[in-house]
C-alpha cells in the first residue's frame, strides 16, 4: 500500500465491509477488504499500527488495527461508536464501502520481542490493538518464552473477544488473566484491576518485554508494577491514543512534547515516553 500511496498519502482506498460482529453494546468488530487487488496485496502492517478510516462526506477517524499481521487480505478494526465517523460506521452493513489509508505509525517491536518472555496488559478498548500482537505471537508461539496476558474490563458485559479468550485459554502455554472490576452475580472469574496479576508473578526482567494498552489512568500503575519486577525502561512498551488527523506528522493534532504520536508512535517504550513532556 505504501508504494501505491506514496503518490498521495491523503488518498483513501475503497474497502468493502465483509463482516460485522457485535462485541458489546458499544463496540463492533468490522472486517474490511480493500477492493484494489494491488493495494490489498501490498498492505503490510505491524501490531500497534493504525489506519485512517474514511466515511465520505462525514470524515476520517484513526483506528488501530486489530487483526494480526500474519492474517493477510483482510483488515479488522474494533470500533467503539463514540463520534460522527464511528457512529455512522456502526449503522453500516456488510457490502458497504468505506475508505482506508495507511497503515501509519510505529507498532510494537515484534522482531525485537521474538525470543523473549512477554507480559501483555490491556484495559478496556486497549484490547483492540493488543489483540493484533497477541494473535501474532499466537501464530508464532514457538519463537516466544513465557506469555502472560492480563485483560481488565469494568463489567462482564464490557469484555470483548470473549470467544478468543476462551480459545486462548485452551492453550497450556498462555498464562491468561481476565478480570472485571465490577462483577455481576454470574461472574466466576477474577475480580479487580489488572495490576493485581502482578502479585506473585515471576518475571525474569532480563528477558521480558512488557506491552500496555489501555485508558490513560491505567498506565502509571501498570508501569509501576513492571518496574517493580525490574523490567528495563526500554523494554516496557505502551500505545498512546490521540486524534491523529493526517497520520503523517504534519497536522499537529497528536503532537505531544517533541513527538508526533502518529509517526513517532503510537507505540513508545517507557524511556521514550518519559522524555515526552505531557505524555503520561
Amino acid at each position: 500500500m505504501k508504494n501505491a500511496m506514496s503518490a498521495n498519502p491523503y488518498r483513501p482506498w475503497p474497502a468493502r465491509i465483509t463482516s460485522i460482529i457485535d462485541l458489546t453494546a458499544k463496540e463492533k468488530l468490522f472486517e474490511f477488504r480493500l477492493i484494489d487487488s494491488a493495494i490489498r496485496e501490498g498492505f503490510r502492517h505491524t501490531a500497534g499500527q493504525f489506519v485512517e478510516l474514511s466515511l465520505f462526506g462525514i470524515g476520517e477517524a484513526p483506528i488501530s488495527i486489530s487483526s494480526a499481521p500474519s492474517k493477510q487480505g483482510f483488515i479488522e478494526l474494533c470500533v467503539r461508536a463514540s463520534g460522527s465517523v464511528t457512529g455512522a460506521l456502526h449503522r453500516m452493513k456488510c457490502g458497504d464501502i468505506v475508505g482506508l489509508r495507511g497503515p501509519f505509525g510505529r507498532g510494537f517491536p515484534f522482531e525485537e520481542m521474538r525470543g523473549h518472555d512477554v507480559l501483555l496488559v490491556a484495559g478496556g478498548l486497549g484490547i483492540a490493538p493488543l489483540k493484533s500482537l497477541i494473535n501474532h505471537i499466537h501464530d508464532e508461539r514457538h519463537d516466544f518464552g513465557k506469555v502472560t496476558i492480563a485483560y481488565g474490563s469494568r463489567t462482564p458485559a464490557d469484555i470483548m473477544f470473549l470467544d478468543q479468550f476462551k480459545m486462548w485459554q485452551h492453550r497450556q502455554d498462555f498464562d491468561l488473566h481476565l478480570l472485571v472490576s465490577q462483577p455481576d452475580d454470574e461472574w466466576t472469574g477474577e475480580v479487580g484491576y489488572v495490576t493485581q496479576c502482578f502479585e506473585g508473578l515471576r518475571v525474569n526482567p532480563l528477558r521480558t518485554y512488557g506491552a500496555i494498552v489501555g485508558p490513560p489512568v491505567m498506565y502509571k500503575s501498570v508501569i509501576e508494577e513492571m518496574r517493580k519486577k525490574g523490567i528495563s525502561y526500554d523494554m516496557i512498551y505502551m500505545s498512546f491514543e490521540r486524534q491523529m488527523k493526517c497520520g503523517m506528522g504534519k497536522c499537529g493534532h497528536c503532537a505531544v512534547g517533541h513527538q508526533y504520536i502518529c509517526v513517532d508512535g503510537p507505540v513508545f517504550n517507557y524511556w521514550e515516553a518519559k522524555n515526552i513532556q505531557g505524555a503520561i
Binding site: Y10, I58, C251, H253
Partner: peptide
C-alpha cells in the same frame, strides 16, 4: 502549519 481535515457534502447530495 497545523491543519484540520474536513468533509463537505454538496447540497445536491451527489458528491462532496
Amino acid at each position: 502549519y497545523c491543519f484540520d481535515l474536513i468533509d463537505l457534502t454538496d447540497p445536491d447530495g451527489c458528491g462532496g
